[in-house]
Design a protein around this nucleic acid. Structure first.
Lengths: 212, 212
DNA sequence: GTCCTATCTGGACACTGCTCAGATAGGATC
DNA sequence: GATCCTATCTGAGCAGTGTCCAGATAGGAC
């Protein structure tokens, strides 16, 4: 059926790998024109292909969005992992994860928007993000266990703590850019101070440090 | 210019009050078909008017959305106020406000969605919600002062605490419906227990009680 | 009664998501 | 190598969208 190349992966017939190309095109459109300009047709245009071509790789627009969303959660996971030194004290690690989460959203607002637009429509996070062993949520969970918020056998309380942390980080990520906070940020000497200030009020994050 | 009636407010020419009628039509469409079906044309149709008519009352679609959003924040404020007994201990009051916030989002998901879609686009909450004396944010602030989180003269810390609470509530409101939490909710004996469980991990909300 | 002007309509434009008949070209079969 | 199969891609077309515009309408001022 498909000729599998060890470098580029499975190769479909005409295009090199249109699915991959579409996702990369989407990422460029997103970066360049923002989430509101992310139409299926714009992505097809960017990939140099007819408006109908994507339908052979994605059932509909929402499925393309979901794929973008899943890549976003992968990137978020990578960034969170890179940002939390596994040898640091657990408390610091949790704080670092929280800061990294918000900074990712700040750095890639368009992708972050797609990630949660998708999740809200489906009323669920992608399983990749929440359930997967190497997903963003499990990284938080491990750090929480080390922090002693709850032991692994207090399953319920541990889960609750992680959800609380995730909700807090998500809320902050969505609101940190709001203009109403500009003057307060200025008063505090910058967004980083603001960020760690808010996080430190949020229970499980302790005295969060926005890394410089 | 305009004939101002003390009961119905300023009256435009042809329609009774098309602006008002459009907002009510929008609300019906929203309730009936959800936020993704909320098009300018659908609203015009629902109001029994041509697709171009709304442009004499709103600059463009986003301005209609903003008006809907502002009404939503007003309703949220009303609900939060009604839900927090001013004679209750401050701590309980803050918790009640948090629970009310999330329950409002749960009860009116479409309106809540529009409220924050708008805010994200404008990178700001409507001033009505954040700055107004009788806005949702100021209600939280007062309760926080009574709770002793920070005195009114520790302006920065007080503001930070309120923002943290707002972020936490918003994050929870957006995620509480995610299917990944279904089994945990069942294990805890219902969504209310889940809700108060998460809130109690979120610093300033203390031992939040999801009211029955 | 006449005019002014805010309001509303119908028609248009470019764009969107999506479908479908038909063209194209790899891979397997003979 | 010729043939067929089928995944892939195109072009045209549909209904729906946001937005604009010329023109119709009708309330208020004179």
């Amino acid at each position: 059926m498909k000729l599998t190349c060890p470098i580029t992966g499975p190769k479909p017939y005409h295009h090199g790998d249109l699915r991959r190309a579409l996702l990369e095109a989407a990422s460029r459109v997103l970066e360049r024109e923002g989430p509101n300009a992310l139409s299926l047709r714009a992505v097809a245009r960017e990939a140099g292909v007819s408006p109908a071509a994507p339908y052979h790789h994605f059932k509909d627009k929402s499925e393309l969005m979901l794929a973008i969303s899943e890549e976003g959660f992968d990137q978020l996971y990578d960034f969170m992992r890179q940002s939390s030194d596994p040898d640091a004290p657990p408390m610091e690690r949790v704080a670092a994860i929280g800061v990294a989460y918000v900074e990712f959203a700040k750095a890639h607002p368009s992708i972050y928007r797609v990630m949660y637009d998708c999740s809200r429509d489906l009323e669920a996070l992608p399983d990749k993000a929440h359930k997967a062993e190497d997903g963003a949520f499990s990284l938080l969970k491990k750090a929480m266990i080390d922090m002693g918020v709850a032991s692994p056998d207090q399953e319920v309380d541990l889960e609750l703590a992680c959800i609380a942390a995730w909700c807090a980080a998500h809320g902050l990520a969505e609101m940190v850019g709001f203009r109403q906070f500009d003057s307060l940020k200025a008063k505090m000497g910058g967004e980083k101070a603001f960020l760690s200030g808010v996080l430190s009020h949020l229970g499980m994050f302790g005295q969060a440090r926005a890394g410089g």
